[in-house]
Amino acid sequence: MDISARVAEFNQKNQLAKLFIENPEAEKWIVHIDGELDLHSSADAQSLLEALLEEMPGRSTLIFNLGKLVYISSTGVGLFANLVVAANKRRIQVILQKLQPNVEQVFSLLGILSYFTIEK
């Protein structure tokens, strides 16, 4: 299944989370995740984003725009931790952008904020 079909399936299944992917430049992907990343949507998002990483060329950049993400569960934080590990292997840079204070707080409470590249 191609990525756009998986995104559509994700949005259909997870009513409280919305995800969409942009590819504005050859080696740059922007993933927007809006709403709430709970236990279930995080697991779905992880398998989708792992598939996206597979398709991305090495040394490209994956940006998460989380400006409209209002809630994140620990599983959601785990999703980003796992993705960064997978991305590092392929020299893909992962950047988290526009984290809401309460979302950033969860990363920070779990003590793994410093492992992420965060942009305002």
Partner: peptide, 27 residues
């Protein structure tokens, strides 16, 4: 109360991230 589970997961994430960072540095 899932604190214990989260603590374990968090350790795992941290270890993985640390290893991954070291791996990148090594590369």
């Amino acid at each position: 109360d899932i604190t214990e589970r989260i603590e374990k997961e968090r350790e795992l994430w941290r270890t993985n991230l640390e290893l991954s960072e070291l791996y990148s540095k090594l590369q």
